[in-house]
């Protein structure tokens, strides 16, 4: 049953990938293959990162409505990036090797995420609404701080920053692809080994402890993984608020199970399917550039409201 659905999803994804590679192809194939191939790879990587991060985050926060982006994780990443430009100065920042910079950003991001969110999560589990609200306001705070810093940064530095961030679906940052693949695969490996434990964690703190899972340690690990994955995806394509929510809700809806061994691959496939086919439609057929993210956000937001009203938060 589940296996069949997973196979169908995989086939659909394969079709979408073929369409993405071939539709409207003009010119030399060797160029196209490399050009579109890297882009496809980036889209797939981002799908994996976002879907896994969201699923994990929902598991440790014990509900199906929160996502790392709603809680301000990707805004935090942009803030970290801006802070680095601010403290190092634009030219030092640019002179740094891209990969090293990326790793440094992830390092700072991990620190900040763990510090901020471990407190919120501990308290929040009892009071979900407060936690969500606090998370959203954190997001606003990070964005405002980013905006604030960007304004007081030297105008030259600001231009540099604009070049560095603001990655989008249509203009993926390709330099970080290799490192991104490495990081995401490492995270996925750890998560796959934890897949049964994650099922237990989803039962809540007391139940997990009762069943012999060291809850505190594992939720720390999961938080670190989530922060890493969000950093990778934000570095590659910029912030996406509701995409993760859309994906995990669909995965729950289609698979109708609580088992991470099934939910993990399912949400990865669904995310990739939406991104690749969406990008194919918008880029190749509608020929319009960056509207995929706006569309996804719009429907994601509607879905969020729907979930709130249906009371399916838990």
């Amino acid at each position: 049953m589940h296996a069949k659905k997973l196979i169908i999803l995989s086939v659909l994804l394969a079709l979408a990938c073929i369409a993405f590679m071939t539709l409207g192809a003009k010119g030399s194939w060797s160029f196209l293959l490399v050009f579109r191939g890297t882009k496809l790879l980036a889209l797939l990587l981002v799908s994996v990162a976002i879907s896994v991060a969201t699923l994990l985050f929902q598991t440790i926060s014990g509900n199906r409505i929160l996502t790392p982006s709603i809680m301000g994780f990707d805004a935090l990443y942009l803030l970290v990036q801006t802070l680095l430009v601010f403290t190092l100065g634009g030219f030092t920042y640019v002179a740094l090797d891209g990969q090293i910079k990326f790793l440094a950003e992830i390092g700072v991001m991990l620190l900040a995420a763990v510090l901020l969110f471990s407190t919120v999560m501990g308290k929040g589990r009892q009071d979900l609404h407060r936690m969500v609200l606090v998370g959203i306001i954190f997001g606003v705070l990070f964005r405002s701080l980013t905006g604030f810093l960007q304004r007081i940064i030297d105008p030259n530095d600001f231009a540099i920053l604009q070049g560095a961030s603001f990655a989008q679906f249509s203009s993926v940052d390709k330099d970080l692809l290799g490192l991104g693949i490495l990081l995401v695969s490492a995270c996925c490996l750890i998560i796959w080994r934890l897949r049964y434990t994650l099922d237990v964690i989803a039962l809540g703190r007391s139940n997990a402890i009762n069943l012999g899972v060291s809850y505190e340690r594992l939720s720390f690990v999961v938080l670190v993984l989530v922060a890493t994955l969000v950093s990778v995806s934000t570095a590659l394509v910029g912030p996406v608020a509701f995409f993760g929510l859309l994906v995990t809700s669909l995965a729950h809806f289609i698979m109708n199970t609580h088992r991470h061994a099934i939910l993990l691959p399912a949400s990865m496939l669904i995310a990739a399917l939406i991104l690749v086919s969406g990008q194919t439609v918008f880029e190749r057929i509608l020929k319009s550039q960056s509207t995929l993210s706006v569309t996804v956000e719009f429907f994601g937001g509607l879905l969020f409201l729907l979930l709130l009203f249906r009371g399916k938060m838990r």
Partner: peptide
Amino acid sequence: LLVPLVGLIFSGIVEALTIF
């Protein structure tokens, strides 16, 4: 706290529509 939450998301949707 659900009230401000719904409000924030609703304003996000209207804003997304406007930006679109």
